[in-house]
Write a protein that binds this DNA or RNA. Structure first.
Lengths: 350, 350
DNA sequence: CTGAAAGCGCTTACAG
DNA sequence: CTGAAAGCGCTTACAG
């Protein structure tokens, strides 16, 4: 890369010692005399020596770089977890490199060979945050030789280790919160069916309704795809129902924002007329007005566990956890209130 | 990486030819008999051979991987340009790897050595989208040997090639649009002073006011930092002025959203009572209600030019452009209307 | 505690 | 059109 790269040999020559000793001092492999080590470190500093990672990779030694493969970086929930992963990696003293290919592909069917080739050229291991990863890609990873840990993967069976946050129970809690407030007509704006996450959230929604003795109506469930504009349209359709819902649970925050906009545009108030719940707790959820009640996955814990698992995978051949799951948590803010009819009854009692 | 990696020698051995010929066939270097090439390609496919990029890097040949260094991935304007860059890189048939370190550092003072080491281990060249890059980092890049192109950099002087979108003229146009609608009290919510971009936007704001014969009042300019919550607070403060502004120009869209929320929370209508303009044209700008009038930089053109420039830098030693600048463009949507007093006058004429 | 040799997978001259 | 040799920068055994 550099016009004339400073190598371990330059350092050795300057000090009249062997390259071997320099390598040992720099890597903490084997014993090196304290004085020698000091001289080496000084020379490294003076010459501006930087290890050549390609040479390290080539003979199978560690680079202390981890790769992160993401399906897209365009949604805020993605950026939140990327950031959490970045911090978890940083805390271990390693470096993180991010790779995204399917973002630019219409289909997600691409294999993992390209990823392994590019990232394997520099990384000790790979974190994969791609809820929609194709079976082919996972198969490539399984036989790829590069240690891999999957994050928040729910789509299919896989032999690869997975660390993930719960979708079902968090959604269940969200909807139970609504039924607890007296809501009986609760709608669900689904996300893309592709990742399996929305499916889990929908399951939680339906079970919470049933547990509250509510028979879900088909028209309450509207297909979405996680985009804000779709949330707007979906809510608009829901508000046009003969018996519109008094609460809307969106499969993610961005659709919840769209729904909130639609509700306001309809001249209705949140939460006085309609309650709204989201999923993800992206940063804007706390900035929007009213502040959005939503479900939060413990991204920090998920990230830390994934990085730790990956390091175990890299370090040894012994058994490591196959699945690690964390609970998600309902974050109650200002977008939910008592169901309108309930409140009217309460008013009358005054 | 792989337990037993398939190498060029395996392919050669299988075919009873030399590794050299395989290398030539795969890289299009030198002539190879058509038949030989076909057999090689078939064997590569069958054996599942993947080139080892580290070996390529080690002897100075191209990897067709470009690096992108970003200061953060947390803002939507960042993700927009990352996506645009991704597409521009993809269009050239190369791969993109993203690296971010300062996101995890409180200070931005870090040098570029770490980046060069990690990314230089795999990349042919480096795109840097870090409006707040430190002089030290740029100095490291200048002598780093890895070809570098800066995007949207306005902060300091640098010898590195820069491709960027205009901030001044776009802001000027935005504010002239407001004065054209009869607004005379126009506020500006500034971004972080750190990047130099907000400074340019503010300059455009001030000049547009002056050109309209308006003397800017100090209380119209509120410090911000590009965050939505800060836009909310800033607008709240502006609305509390004895003579509140009839229009607000925010240095980015996210602060504009915060301002819109504050205005609504104040019981005022957009644009009937107050007009709002943003900067960046992030995707949500078209989803929010009312849709946000804002200034858009041509991210696609900037990205494509940057990738092309970087490829020139990588490919040859000849002179390449030192600066490439693009105009930004005012996108008029629904968040601006005539100044209230003007409209009242017009009403009276009816 | 330190060093000489060999090799990781590939490519660039140099020969044929 | 094809091949044998040497080397990119580093590390892992193997000797001392």
């Amino acid at each position: 890369m550099a016009d004339t790269q400073v190598t371990i040999y330059d350092v050795a020559e300057k000090l009249g010692i062997s390259a071997m000793t320099v390598s040992r001092a720099l890597n903490g492999t084997g014993r090196v005399a304290a004085k020698t080590r000091e001289r080496i470190l000084a020379a490294v500093e003076e010459l501006g020596y930087l290890p050549n990672l390609s040479a390290k990779v080539l003979n199978g030694s560690r680079t202390h770089v981890l790769g992160l493969l993401v399906g897209s970086i365009l949604s805020q929930s993605m950026t939140s977890i990327i950031s959490a992963i970045g911090q978890a990696v940083k805390a271990t003293g390693m470096n993180l490199v991010i790779y995204t290919n399917s973002q630019f592909d219409a289909t997600d069917r691409a294999g993992g060979d390209n990823v392994i080739q590019v990232l394997g050229g520099i990384c000790d291991g790979l974190l994969v945050f791609m809820p929609g990863a194709s079976p082919r890609m996972l198969a490539d990873f399984e036989r790829g030789g590069l240690p891999v840990v999957l994050l928040n993967y729910w789509h299919d069976e896989t032999a690869l280790p997975v660390v993930r946050g719960d979708n079902y129970h968090g959604s269940f809690a969200a909807v139970r919160h609504l039924t607890g407030l007296g809501h009986r007509r609760i709608a669900f704006i689904a996300g893309s069916a592709y990742t399996g996450q929305s499916r889990e959230r929908q399951r939680g929604y339906l079970d919470a309704l049933r547990q509250a003795g509510i028979v879900p109506r088909p028209e309450w469930v509207v297909d979405g795809d996680f985009a804000q504009s779709v949330g707007f349209e979906a809510a608009t359709r829901l508000l046009a129902l003969a018996e519109p819902p008094t609460a809307i649970f969106a499969a993610n925050d961005e659709m919840a924002f769209g729904a909130m906009d639609a509700i306001k545009a309809h001249g209705l108030r949140i939460p006085a007329d309609i309650s709204v719940v989201g999923f993800d707790d992206i940063p804007s959820a706390g900035h929007v007005h009213p502040k959005l009640t939503t479900v939060r996955q413990p991204l920090v814990e998920i990230s830390e566990a994934a990085v730790e698992l990956l390091q175990q995978r890299i370090g040894t051949e012994r058994q490591i956890a196959r699945r690690v799951e964390f609970n998600s948590e309902l974050v109650i803010r200002d977008s939910c209130g008592p169901a309108p009819d309930v409140r009217q009854r309460a008013d009358r009692q005054d």
